[in-house]
């Protein structure tokens, strides 16, 4: 099996083109890791959603892509972090259809469904940190 870099890749998110670049890089990494084609699309879509949230709510932030290994399993971990306004009500933010912008309110709950693991931390006035992982099947 080929050696896979575990060095995290940091992708700044500050405009629309960055969203496209982050999700394309994520897909490439997923394929290199051995994910099937459909899974690559699911991962790219989840990256697009969390990157869009950064742009929409915090204007800037970063997406960190990292290959992870645990108990013989390989996965791709995605961290989306910003120093934006934070989310006052996480429970609501994870509910389908809830949005404080003009979006569809599917970004966070949808990304959670697209990935295997999903965690979110947020502090009002400090920022938001989403960590999600998908494992190669």
């Amino acid at each position: 099996m080929s050696e896979i870099s575990t060095e995290p890749l940091v992708m700044p998110i500050a405009n629309e083109a960055d969203i496209v670049a982050a999700r394309q890089r994520g897909r490439t990494m997923a394929i290199e890791l051995g994910f099937a084609g459909c899974d690559g699309t699911l991962i790219a879509t989840a990256i697009s959603e969390v990157a869009r949230n950064i742009l929409l709510y915090a204007q800037r932030g970063e997406i960190i892509l990292c290959c992870v290994e645990l108990g013989g399993r390989r996965g791709l971990s995605i961290e989306a972090r910003d120093s934006g306004p934070g989310i006052p009500d996480l429970r609501k933010a994870l509910t389908d259809g809830y949005s404080t912008s003009r979006g569809l309110g599917l970004g966070l709950p949808g990304s959670r469904r697209l990935m295997d693991e999903f965690a979110i931390e947020s502090e009002v006035g400090r920022g938001t940190n989403v960590t999600m992982t998908k494992w190669v099947r």
Binding site: C38, D39, T41, L42, T45, L104, L106, G110, R113
Partner: peptide, 14 residues
């Protein structure tokens, strides 16, 4: 709409 894209859209709730 490609197979993976269709699946991702449904998972997303679109």
């Amino acid at each position: 709409i490609q197979p993976g894209v269709a699946f991702a859209m449904v998972q997303l709730g679109l």
